[in-house]
Design a protein around this nucleic acid. Structure first.
Length: 627
DNA sequence: GCAAGGTC
């Protein structure tokens, strides 16, 4: 019988796909690695009929790249790393066993089918698997290796993927190897140069490693940018008209329709006109009431999870993903690294919801959502789809007995978020009254919440009826209890919070859902930035501020003034991401992009070397100005 | 002692 070897990117996918395709008749074999299992079963493929199938997996990348020994740290001028040869090596300590398992299983196989995630890295991991499979089976090559296309684990979707495989995408493989090479050459050269330069001048007052990375520097750049804006902020005085209507016993403050003015005289002229014109009386020009709603949240992505846990629980991004990872491994939640904010079609929401009816906390809500007519609504759809994983959602109910406090919080959040997604929007009515005083318009509005719906379960969001507006009538003349020219001062921006940093990185394509937390962690462990608490109690937030070293590095690099790039801003990484997409689309070739980008970085490297005193002095000046 | 990308 024809033998087919299927290989997924991670054990959980192998297990799930094997169960689906094997229809319950699956036998399990150990692989030599603790996490990786081999699943044997039979499946009927359209082209090959009934086959003996082995489904196994790797653990992410099998290999990584590095320089040969003669180009190791200390053995050559960092400048040479832009042209040095590059070799492939096994990645991580446990990769050997995983790799051997692929080679052994492939030896007897007639066909190789790749089941890695449907993204760029997944294509490359597929290529690594093929290279490994070739070692004892010369038959396999890019043209006869199959690739299953799937974006979630729903049964019919998986069966369709098995029956309609395509080929590995050579362009995507090239794009990833381009990224790897750029990151290695630039990261290693600049890191060695900076470390040696800083340690030569400042010895033990700087950390052991002063690193550069195409993601960590822009991350640091965001932190420094905000810090500088706070530091250089000069408050400005502004003026505005402030009036308050008196109606029976209640006083209603009204907001001026124009923005505040920075010119006191202009504001004063307007104010005097109004007083002359209308005194302490104003006219109601419009009263309207309209239905309004507060939308239930979108399905949960990794980035959103990190932002929410940072805002709500003050958890670090790394801490959050670690908790999510644990919850996933225990089978409580779905795969936690996803960019997708829309659920697949024909997803069985009701059965997922029903599992939570047993909860003592949210059980009542879940039961009602699953069973009472008119409660459930299919979740809204966001616009992101990584084609690999569904949004994060609970798989099983747990009372949390086996979880620590943080994991419990994250789990509860995932559940509440999911139930909220499946609930109706909150509704209310918004009453707005418009008033004319002199030549100017003012307005006040009052919210009346009618149906709370999702807010009952998503207790992290607040949307409450504001103080009720008294009844006003069109054309009514009202008395003002206050009519004054008010003044205020503009306030400085706050230092960056982690959740804002995550949002900036996400928007600027710095890192991925799986790595954003690591880059933030990196600038902290490199002593480029620190987290400082602001406020106390419930209003406490953690802000990220640069250290003298982080500030000095960014300022120094900014002062050098490279030709058309900046190493501390996100644009270069974005440009690379764009070019990588061009490689995938076939609009550019790998070699062409490599030459362009490496040349750009090399020029920047040479310039940095020539101007190393600029960077060193920038740091020294900051240290001195603080002491 | 270096990067960033997977995953455990």
């Amino acid at each position: 019988m024809t033998r087919v070897l299927c290989v997924a990117e991670k054990p959980s996918i192998a297990k799930s796909v094997a169960q689906t395709l094997g229809g319950g008749r699956v036998s399990l074999r150990e692989s030599g690695n603790k996490y990786v299992k081999n699943y044997d079963f039979r499946f009927e493929f359209p082209e090959w009929g009934w086959c003996d199938v082995t489904m196994t997996s790797v653990l992410g990348h099998l290999t990584s790249i590095d320089f040969p020994e003669s180009f190791a740290w200390g053995n050559c001028d960092p400048d040479r790393l832009f042209q040095a040869p590059i070799m492939t090596k096994g990645s991580g300590s446990d990769s050997a066993k995983v790799a051997t398992n692929i080679t052994n299983e492939a030896q007897r196989a007639n066909h190789l089918m790749i089941w890695t995630d449907c993204d760029r890295e997944g294509e490359y991991i597929g290529f690594e698997i093929l290279e490994q499979a070739k070692k004892k089976n010369g038959f396999f090559n890019l043209n006869n290796t199959y690739r299953a296309q799937f974006s979630h684990l729903e049964r019919s979707h998986i069966v369709r993927a098995a029956k309609n495989p395509i080929k590995l995408n050579k362009n995507a493989i090239d794009a990833v190897s381009t990224r790897m090479e750029v990151d290695l050459r630039t990261g290693a050269s600049f890191t060695r140069f900076l470390t040696e330069t800083f340690r030569a001048r400042f010895k033990d007052t700087v950390p052991k490693v002063v690193s550069y990375g195409a993601c960590q520097f822009p991350t640091l750049g965001f932190v420094v940018d905000r810090y500088k804006r706070v530091k250089s902020f000069v408050p400005e005085e502004f003026w505005y008209l402030s009036i308050e209507a008196k109606k029976g016993n209640s006083k209603v403050p009204l907001t001026w329709s124009k923005p505040s003015l920075f010119d006191r005289l202009v504001a004063l002229v307007i104010y005097q006109e109004c007083v002359q014109f209308s005194g302490n009386q104003a006219t109601v020009t419009n009263v309207s009431s309209r239905p309004t709603s507060n939308w239930a949240p979108l399905p949960l992505t990794t980035v959103e999870l990190q932002k929410c846990c940072s805002n709500i629980f003050k958890m670090g991004a790394k801490e959050t993903v670690d908790c999510a990872e644990k919850l996933y491994n225990m089978g409580f939640i779905s795969y936690p690294r996803t960019e997708t904010d829309k659920f697949p079609k024909n997803m069985d929401f009701k059965s997922l919801i029903e599992k939570h009816a047993q909860s003592s906390t949210w059980g009542e809500y879940a039961a009602a959502l699953a069973n009472e007519p008119g409660k459930f609504r299919t979740p809204r759809e966001g616009s992101h789809d990584d084609k690999a994983h569904p949004p994060i959602h609970p798989i099983c109910f747990t009372d949390g007995a086996s979880l620590n406090a943080k994991q419990k919080q994250v789990y509860e959040f995932v559940v509440r978020r999911f139930l909220a997604c499946c609930s109706k929007d909150a509704t209310g009515s918004l009453t707005t009254v418009k008033v004319r005083w002199g030549t100017e318009d003012f307005a006040a509005s009052g919210l009346n919440v009618i149906e709370t719906n999702y807010l009952d379960i998503y207790t992290y969001s607040k949307w409450e009826s504001s103080k009720k507006l008294p009844a006003f009538e069109m054309g009514e003349i009202i008395n003002l209890s206050k009519a004054e020219l008010a003044t205020g001062r503009t306030s400085p921006p706050e230092y960056l919070t982690e959740s804002e940093l995550i949002a900036l990185m996400d928007a600027n394509e710095i890192g991925t859902d799986a790595t954003i937390a690591e880059h933030i962690e990196k600038i902290l462990t490199r002593e480029y930035a620190v987290k400082v608490p602001k406020g106390t109690g419930r209003s406490k937030v953690l802000q990220i501020v640069p250290t003298e070293l982080g500030y000095g590095l960014v300022e120094g690099f900014n002062q050098i003034g490279f030709d058309r790039i900046s190493l501390t801003k996100p644009f270069l990484r974005r440009e690379l991401e764009g070019k990588l997409r061009n490689i995938v689309d076939g609009q550019k070739r790998k070699q062409e992009v490599l030459e362009e980008i490496i040349e750009l970085y090399h020029q920047a490297f040479v310039q940095t070397k020539q101007n190393k005193s600029v960077v060193l002095d920038s740091y020294r000046k900051i240290v001195e100005s603080n002491s």
